[in-house]
Amino acid sequence: MRPFDFLEPSSLPEALSMLAEHGDACCIMAGGTALLLAMRQRMLAPETVVSLGKLDELRDIAFDPDAGLRIGALARHADVAGSSIVQAHCPALAGMAGGLANPQVRNQGTIGGNLCYADPATDPATFLLAAGAEVTIAGRGGERRLPLRAFLVDYFTTALESGEILTAIHLPPPGSRQMLYRRYLRTPAEHRPVVNIALSAVTDGGALSDVRLIVGAATPVPQALAQTEDFLAGKSVNAAIAAEAAALAGAEVEPLSDGRADAAFRRQIVRTATRRILLDAAGLDWKDNAA
């Protein structure tokens, strides 16, 4: 790993002024799990690393009945998983965070760092998109808030501008919304998801409305399956509907191919994942319902 200057601001304004001073020659470090790997493999060689480790105010997790959940960007995955607030107001988020990567990484990696790194082979972004999350970004000119959809630009690329820091993630109050999340590994011995899927919908007397169906890990950035969402609107899920939705999802997903799996395989998993998450949401058993 190349030598670098290590800066540890003790407040957000100090952090922002350090970023302004060092410009593109610096990297922001949150938990550091992904950044250090990239630096050790010399994919990144910053002159300066600005560690946010002392900004404890960015670790807070809070809930407000009107505003919903606010998760500080530096909350570690284990903090999110173990938070009684998260467990009470969005248990599916706690479940997602508690199954991510492995215990040691959950103890160190942060939810904000995860989103900023924008590695597709991970879980939070898929879930948070389905939850309708927004993010707050601090810059020298003040804060801006934008939908997570707009924040996630591409493979390892976000809307974060030079000199900005992601400070918080907001989830709207769940209301009567049902949320499910599933992670698919190619084999039980792999730990990064090959496909993940999140479903968020309002179930009104059985019929679905305001459906959000997001797949990730299969695609450069998590993809909203818009046609499938439209198809599902107003429908009550049964085996035939789930199968039809699965076919639609398989058709509209634009999967990537890499060393871990090719596009055709990922497409098949997306079909499967779609069918199963819909049947799970409807309380039906997918094991007996092969498409």
Partner: peptide, 17 residues
Amino acid sequence: LMNGNLADYTMPTADAL
């Protein structure tokens, strides 16, 4: 060799068994 690391050459972990 494209997967010469323990993340991509996947030996079973306890949770896989």
